[in-house]
Computed example of a mutant assay.
Amino acid sequence: MDLFNPEFNPKYNRLPKDGMVLYFGKVMDYHKAHFYFNRLLETIEWRNDEAIIFGQLITTKRKVAWYGDRNFKYSYSKITKEALPWTEELLALKQLAEEKTEETYNSCLLNLYHDGNEGMAWHSDAEKDLKKNGAIASMSFGAERKFAFKHKSTKETVSLFLENGSLLVMKDETQTHWLHRLPPSKKIAKARINLTFRTINTFETSL
C-alpha cells in the first residue's frame, strides 16, 4: 500500500470541502469477505424496504434490516423501524469498523441490492434520530459498485468505487452539505450487501 498516493491513503479526505469522507479500501481478504457475504445473506432478517412518497406506500425490490444495541427506533421516508438485537457476525464487523475508524457505533442499517438495477437515489443521512455530525461507517460485500457524492450548493460531484470487503467512513459536516447515492448499472449482475454503522441519539439523562 502506497500511503503517499491519495487513492490508497485512508487519511486522505475524498471531499474537497464541507465534510470528510475517508476510504480505507479492503479491510479483509477475499475469503473472509466471501464468508461474511454468505453469512449475512443467511442470518439477517431481510425485509423489502418501504417508503411513503406523495402519500403512497412504496415497496422496493431492495431489502433492508436494522440492528442495534437495543430496540432503537429509526425513521426515514416517513417509515419507522425498530432495531433487532445484534448477530454474532454483525458484532464482529462493528468491532472491526470501530477499530479502523476510531469511532463508536450503536446501530447498523443493512441494504441488500440483488443486482445493478437496484440502487439508491440522492439523499443525506441527517435524520433527527442520528447523532448530528456523527460518523457513519459503510462496509461493502459482494459486487463492486460506484458511490457518488454531490454538494448541495455547488452541485460539485465526487465518486469512487467500493470494493468487496471495503470500508468507508463519512463524518463531520458531510451529511449537512453533501448528498450521496448508489447509481444503478445494468452491467452488474451480482448482489451487494452494504452495512452502515451509525449512532442513534439516546437522550439519556441521569437524575
Rank of each mutant, 00 (worst) to 15 (best):
T202D: 03
N9L: 09
M139I: 09
I79C: 10
D2S: 08
K146E: 09
S107A: 10
R70F: 15
L57C: 03
A65G: 11
M120N: 08
L84Q: 14
S77F: 05
F141S: 03
G116A: 05
F8N: 08
M20R: 06
E144M: 06
F161N: 05
P16Y: 09
I53R: 13
Y76Q: 00
L207D: 12
S124W: 11
E82N: 12
T60A: 06
Q175R: 11
Y74C: 02
Q56E: 08
Y36N: 01
P85F: 15
K81A: 13
Y105Q: 06
Y113C: 01
A33S: 15
A148M: 15
P183Q: 11
L57E: 09
S159Q: 02
P6I: 10
L179R: 02
Y30K: 04
F149Q: 04
G116M: 06
K100C: 11
I79G: 09
L160W: 03
Y76S: 05
E98V: 01
E156A: 06
K17A: 15
T176D: 10
L195S: 02
K94G: 12
K81C: 09
L22S: 01
N117M: 09
F8G: 05
S75F: 03
F54P: 02
T196Y: 07
E163C: 13
N71Q: 12
H31Y: 10
Y76N: 07
H151I: 10
Y30H: 14
I200S: 11
F35Y: 14
L57F: 04
H151F: 09
K152M: 11
E99G: 04
F35G: 07
E42F: 12
L96K: 01
E99K: 01
K61T: 15
I193M: 02
H114I: 14
A65E: 09
K186C: 10
S140D: 07
K100D: 07
K128D: 14
H123I: 14
M28G: 01
V64L: 08
S159T: 09
A143K: 00
V169R: 03
F203R: 00
Y105T: 01
N117Y: 05
A148G: 15
K94F: 14
L160E: 03
L112I: 13
H114F: 13
E42T: 09
E42D: 13
